[in-house]
Design a protein around this nucleic acid. Structure first.
Lengths: 109, 109
DNA sequence: AATGTTTATCGTAATATTGCAATATTAAAA
DNA sequence: TTTTAATATTGCAATATTACGATAAACATT
């Protein structure tokens, strides 16, 4: 085993889990916070911002890219990373919807 | 390796990643959606709601409990599971803050 | 007391993730 | 063209996660 049984869940459930998975590592949160902080694309220097080796950072960037959260545009020698605003907004709504679905009418606990 | 280097990141970054990790599986999303849907505590029948074996469900419930998202109160024979509203609200704000930090002033891409 | 019900834990197999050294790739700079 | 710089990929070791059968624990019911 070890493989998630995605087939047995709804598309939506798998989607939410996939976004959460992309955010489920402090290095990836750090990358996103850096991109949010500088409020622009980053051409280089992401590796220097993180306490991890270059291949490891590259791998985390790849996961964020695969999740659609960031995009990387070749900019001459370097690569320019940006948060994809549309995806970011879509994901914001997905989490907002999930978290706001609660209704304070519990009957126990 | 395989072990996340939590020490090298801020508490906040680790916290966000930990919440995301708890949400990073469709079964756990399904459990939470069920708890949200029935709008009450669930004493039993969570296992029947999911396409997974009982020990697997129990394990997922444990992870949600460890993350503080749900709590389980012993109710005679069964155990009554609830979403912890305070933690839920706290997590909602954490994600809201993360997602709303974006600023549409990009200079490239 | 014996049985049934519900949930947890143990043990284990399969798979995934994390991290990095080594190496490859790509393009700018010298 | 050689060198330098930036990023990606490969390969591998360590660890984590997912899943479930078997079993245990706790309590209710008979």
């Amino acid at each position: 085993m070890g493989a998630t049984k995605s087939d047995h869940f709804t598309q939506k459930q798998n989607d939410i889990a996939a976004i959460a998975k992309a955010l489920a590592h402090p290095a990836r949160i750090a990358i996103l916070e850096y991109l949010l902080k500088v409020d622009a694309c980053i051409c280089g220097d992401i590796v220097n911002e993180l306490p991890l080796a270059q291949p490891t950072v590259s791998q985390h960037l790849k996961e964020l890219k695969n999740a659609g959260i960031i995009s990387g545009n070749i900019e001459g020698n370097a690569i320019c990373y940006c948060i994809d605003e549309k995806v970011w907004e879509k994901n914001r709504k997905i989490f907002e919807t999930l978290f706001e679905r609660i209704n304070k009418k519990k009957t126990c606990c």
